[in-house]
Write a protein that binds this DNA or RNA. Structure first.
Lengths: 216, 216, 216, 216
DNA sequence: CATGAATGAGTTTTCATTCAT
DNA sequence: TATGAATGAAAACTCATTCAT
């Protein structure tokens, strides 16, 4: 597929249409016909560009992930003074993105879930991409703040990252469901979910930090 | 389908074969032909019993969930003195089950993930089942112990349940991946995952409980 | 099939159930399962007795025809003085039967129509039966009256029989449709159809008979 | 189905092949595979064009009816001076068509007969089409001549139309059977059937008209 | 004799993919 | 390069028929 010359405009239309269809229908029930129609191109072009539906999925996924990570402003993670404010900032920022790029986020969250629907090869490729991303981003995102935390004896940075990550995922899940049910929601509407999460982070913080540093 | 007389032995063989095929291939790639062959019955019988592949999935899922919940010994949850030992006991017990009933657990964990592959109707039915289960079991399992905990001011039971549940899910995910990669694993092999989780719970406990009670 | 000992009661139930199902659904869409269930016997027995669905159809058809012709009181045809009264009597009598034996009549009328749905062999057998019946009954029924008619020169008995038969068929068709739409209809409700037909017969009579005899 | 672009040539081949298969085998026993093969197209294309076998039947039926009515030269009906010559002309003309378009006519005559084989929806659609056609054509065809007839007192136009129609149907039935048995028959071979029918019409005419007008 | 659970051949239908234009 | 009509392999599903009990 590498040597096929692609019209950037059409690529954009195809990917956008594919994102929507894959998110709405899942990989299996998504129809290339529908994707092509909504993209305003022919079915043939999609296969010309991407070779197969499975590879279209992979490319759509990768493109989407790149777009998301590109938009991600790491400073909201790295600039915070304590866990609580970091999470709060990060969550709010993420929710802004999640609202603005609803479909893209949904796709990224659905990817792991869609794995079994894919053929062997693409299954592997998507899984590898996710693994690579994880390895790269999770520490990068939380590390700088974690470094500055005054952890209790016996508590490791990895544990804190793990707990925070877990809570973050849960928040993202809740937001997704909420956004599916309220497509016109704003950040304000998601505030309760943020507040809930922040409260949980507070508990974690209290449990992870040395008493003297356990005051904000 | 309710009034079709079913041979319990064949039902068992079919469900078992279906569990394996659905777990291995996912709903879409699973072939009724293969399920029938491995169950030692005819394709026709499966349709005679279950009406459609989608409904076979639903019935397989429900049967599996019932089997799992039936095996679940709630006392491991309800009998513990503190969060840490409760989680420890529960996790170890759950892992034993997860090893013994690898396929069943995999199916139960895959269900949510398979939703988009199912036709509308079954999608709804599976989702409803999951929702109902959640509502029923989560509080029942963690409630009794949580009740006895001496929570810090400002920390609610719901928050603790939420945190513990989140960690539990993460452990289950890790175990599943591990078991896929090491099909012959024993509980001992999963011990590191348990230990990790227990450490996280300790942090949560420390963060959630009043200082005076925060010593075991 | 001849050497299979059959329980007369069960035969009756099967035939009755088969008549209804074949009439309601047509041969193709009729299900042996449904026939067996409504007959209160097992599917197996039907095949034990009749060997195949197609042969069941044939036997049902023949039994039905025999029942109808047995009930037919030929004197209503043979006793009349003129065409008009013959037809009138005959039609009314036939309608009584058609109301009383709705399903049986419907089956007999549907038979020709169902031919293409049958396998070669039964197609032939049903067609032969119809042909034989026609050859036997039509002249027997109208002959005696026709013999007594004083036909115009150039008008043959065959022509009159043909015209009368044609009108008779048309009436039967109309009655059937009417009975389908008004299952609880009585002979009185069908009177308009009879009157219409009688008027047509009057015209035929007028056209077929010598002027001097053309007055009742 | 309306918005699928269809190659007129292929449509023609498919419809032609479908006509033959449906006439030869009836709806149920007709195989889409056979239709496709004889049409020189793939099975897939037929479903692409028509969506289902049942709808293919409906479209084949409608196309056939349209072709027949298009070919029908109404002047043969409307131009005649008296009943007898009208029928004679019409029958002969119709038989020419029936010979030339044997399959098409056979399909049109079989339609009513095939109704029970079709799924509910198509059953309805075909029945509706037939009803609509009937309502539209019968009066148009016979009306103009009937209008000019000098009917006896007590004889209505409707009655004459009814009788003539009945005879016409009977002729068509006979011709169809004859043509099935003698596929190479010409109009001349069908002459006896026409003559028979004309004789019947004469009788009707004699019976329906005022004596003074009852001479040609 | 009678049963009805089980079979599997036979069909329809779907849709990713191809390829002539 | 782009199209989209056409393909046909792959699967789900049906139901008459069988046969062990």
């Amino acid at each position: 597929m590498k040597d096929v010359v692609k019209d950037p405009l059409k690529v954009e239309q195809i990917i956008k249409s594919a994102q929507k269809e894959f998110v709405d229908q899942g990989f299996t029930r998504a129809k290339t016909e529908t994707i092509a129609k909504n993209a305003g191109v022919s079915k043939g072009l999609i296969f010309h560009y991407y070779g197969s539906k499975a590879n279209l999925y992979y490319e759509t996924f990768v493109t989407t992930m790149e777009m998301i990570t590109e938009k991600a402003d790491l400073t909201v993670w790295t600039g915070a003074e304590n866990l609580e404010s970091m999470i709060k900032n990060a969550l709010i920022y993420k929710m802004k993105l999640q609202i603005e790029y609803k479909t893209e986020f949904a796709l990224s969250m659905q990817a792991y879930t869609s794995l079994t629907e894919l053929p062997e090869l693409e299954q592997q490729k998507v899984a590898d991409y996710i693994k690579k991303q994880m390895a790269e981003y999770v520490p990068m995102m939380s590390g700088p703040v974690i470094d500055r935390l005054n952890l209790r004896d016996g508590v490791t940075q990895e544990q804190v990252i793990s707990l925070v990550g877990t809570v973050g995922s849960a928040v993202q899940d809740k937001s997704k469901v909420f956004l599916q049910q309220h497509p016109e929601a704003t950040v304000a509407d998601l505030q309760p979910i943020v507040d809930e999460a922040v409260a949980l982070i507070e508990i974690i913080e209290h449990g992870a930090l040395k008493p003297e540093s356990d005051t904000k």
